[in-house]
Amino acid sequence: MKNRLKVLRAERDWTQAQLADELDVSRQTINAIEKGKFDPSLPLAFKAARLFKLSIEDIFQDEGAAEQGEYSQGGY
């Protein structure tokens, strides 16, 4: 799963530790999510969405669905 967490965090000039504190998780968890090594649970994704005042889809994108979208746009 792809995500824009790093970009959104950078836009607000927050550190990983600050974001981790806001979401009540460890900095290691934020780092793993940003690197795409770990997919957050739905409650954590909702929490992040509330924090950034965005929808979940604006932050997290399913890579499989994104590829399908590209194919359908390309006429497959």
């Binding site: 607000r12 600050q18 504190d21 009540d24």
Partner: peptide, 12 residues
């Protein structure tokens, strides 16, 4: 949003 030191240690 306000990120303060006080909030930072909930998990820890």
């Amino acid at each position: 949003m306000s990120i303060t030191k006080q909030e930072s240690s909930k998990l820890a």
